[in-house]
Design a protein around this nucleic acid. Structure first.
Length: 164
DNA sequence: CGCAAGATTATT
DNA sequence: ATAATCTTGCGA
């Protein structure tokens, strides 16, 4: 069951929590999402969208269910899924993925193994045949912590991890 | 047009 | 704890 637009068209923090245990399909790869982080605009200083719809963050202001891939430190790619309705910035960073054969911890590793680059940014995952999200496990436990690698808004517990 | 900083990872 | 490395954002 593929996740529809209504799933992403909600509060970013809620979507981040609900994405845990869901399945990410990208080409021949398919894995469970084990770790996410929520990034909103406006009130979140750590978000790319905080300063408004700049060139890089414009996708976060667009339609929910779209992919948002950016390059960080000139080395690593990070995969996000846009949330909230058009005009309201928000995205969920996919930090951890559980494949049948291995565990990918860290957004950079995920994009490296799946072959995700900025070419895959701005894709509508709701309509795309080989790049989308679907339901996974129904029940599991998880915890919330502060986000990693940022120096602003570290008081917000918007990082969610499956504890199994 | 030039400069400073960053949603990370691998290495010491 | 720190370097690597290049794109983005902001100032001149």
């Amino acid at each position: 069951m593929k996740l529809q637009k209504e799933f992403f068209n909600r509060s970013t923090v809620e979507v981040a929590q609900d994405l845990l245990g869901k399945s990410l399909v990208f080409g021949n790869f398919k894995g469970l999402i084990t770790e996410t982080e929520a990034y909103r605009g406006f009130d979140d200083e750590a978000s790319h969208a905080y300063r408004g719809p700049t060139t890089r963050a414009a996708i976060m202001f667009g339609e929910p269910g779209y992919s948002y891939v950016y390059l960080i430190y000139g080395i690593h790619h990070c995969l996000n899924i846009v949330t909230e309705t058009s005009g309201c910035p928000g995205a969920v960073l996919i930090r951890g993925l559980q494949l049948p054969t291995l565990i990918l911890d860290g957004p950079g590793k995920i994009c490296q193994h799946l072959g995700i680059t900025r070419q895959h940014s701005g894709i509508n995952t709701i309509n795309h045949p080989h790049f989308y999200l679907e339901n996974g496990v129904d029940s599991f436990s998880y915890k919330a912590t502060s986000r990693i690698g940022i120096k602003k808004a570290t008081d917000k517990l918007w990082r969610f991890i499956i504890t199994t």
